[in-house]
Each structure stands twice: as structure tokens, then as C-alpha cells.
Amino acid sequence: MGGSARSEIFASLRKTGRGETQENVQRERLSLGSAPAPEPPATEVCEAFILNVLKNQGSVDCVSNRSEAVQAIAHYLYAHFHNYRLVTGNDSRLGAMPWRDAGVLPRFGSLEAGEPVALSYARLGVVETGAVVTWTGKATPAANNFLPKHHIVLVDKNDLVLTMEKAWERIHHAFEKTGRARGINFIAGPSSTADIEAELVYGAHGPHRWHVVLLGDVPVDARNIASAAGSDQT
């Protein structure tokens, strides 16, 4: 069945297709160029990214180094759960964090029942949408993105890109070395639904809190925007 269905469908498509050569099709696509992207809400990259994360109902902490990152995550955990436990993937960058300094007790692996918090280390942050990008693998089990009640995501300032087109450039470049991942996830906020009477509810199937920790030399104005929003510690 499959073989003949395929043959019939392609035969039908060839009748309507232009029958162009591969080179001509690719040349035509190239001539169409790239899509226009929206202007960022601020000229400074970190500021624009933070503003869009906040717009997506995320919360943000800005930290200068890994030690501060661990402290910020510890504060977040204690503020919400009165403990210092979380789950994270087998990411070498996360394995090398000074967790003990802040008393954080990470479990490296995939989220299991009863574990409310997971931490992911994003590959990219997209300024245009305020999204973080992860791809599946040992370092980022998919369950850690989609099953916890609280999802904390660490993003390097150096991994911020302006648009989704720039994100794809980076993704393709990374996959040239490692091969394609099974899944790529652009995450722009906590899980939500407005299916019942158009009332927006956060925390549908996935996280109801989404907390971004921006790591690097973040300008003061951007830090001020994040701390003024400051809802992450409550």
C-alpha cells in the first residue's frame, strides 16, 4: 500500500510541478531571501532579551559568574520549596558548577515522579522572542523541560542571538559537528492554556513557573529591569 500510495502521490504532484532542476529550485528559493524580524524592545541585547522573557511571564536573575548562578538558584529553590533539591541533565557545564558552595543538591538525570524542579542549560537565547533553546540529548532530557512544576533555565549571555534566523545558523553549525539532535525546543514561557472560556491559566501540562538565569557580563540597566520585575523569589 505504502509504495503505491507514494508513487501515485508523486506522479500526481509531478503533473502540477514545474519540473525544475534542483539547481533552479534552490536558486529561486535563495532569491526570495530571509523574512523580516520584529524590532527588539531595546537596543541593548540583554535588556531586550530580559524584557521579552518577562513579557512571556518568565522571571529573570542576572548573575556574573557560575558561583553567583549557584547562589541565585539556591535562593530560588529555598524561596519556593524550602529545600535545595533539583534535577538536571548530564551536562558537563552543569556538572562543573560549585553546587556545594550554596548547598544545592542536584540529581543528574531525567525528572521522575514527585520531583518538582528541573534545571536546563540552554544552548541559545533568542532576543526576538524571549525564548531559550535546548536540544535533546544526554545533557537535556526532554522530561526536564516539559514535566517539572518549575523549570529553571541557565543561559550564557554569549549565547544570545537576535533572531530565529540567527538561532538556526547556530543550530546548523552545532549539528555539523555532532549530528542532528532528535528534538529542538524553543521555550518561551511557562506552559499555559486558554481553552476554557478564554481564561489564561499557567501550568497546563508543563511548568507553571519558568525562571531564566542569565549568566555573564550583563549591563546594569538590564540587571535593574530584571530585579525591578523581581517576582522570582516569591
Binding site: 538525570g109 525564548a131 535533546t136 526532554a142 522530561a143 539532535a181 518561551a188
Partner: peptide, 20 residues
């Protein structure tokens, strides 16, 4: 500006992956 989850999938679990 973007839905909460915009995901791209292709293929089964790769070597070393814990889920998928």
C-alpha cells in the same frame, strides 16, 4: 510573539539519551 513551545522533532532517541 511566539507560542510557549515551538519544537522540532525528527527521529528516534539518540545514543546516550535518557528519554524519547
Amino acid at each position: 510573539p511566539q507560542s510557549c513551545y515551538t519544537s522540532f522533532y525528527s527521529g528516534p532517541r539518540r545514543e546516550g539519551e535518557l528519554d524519547g
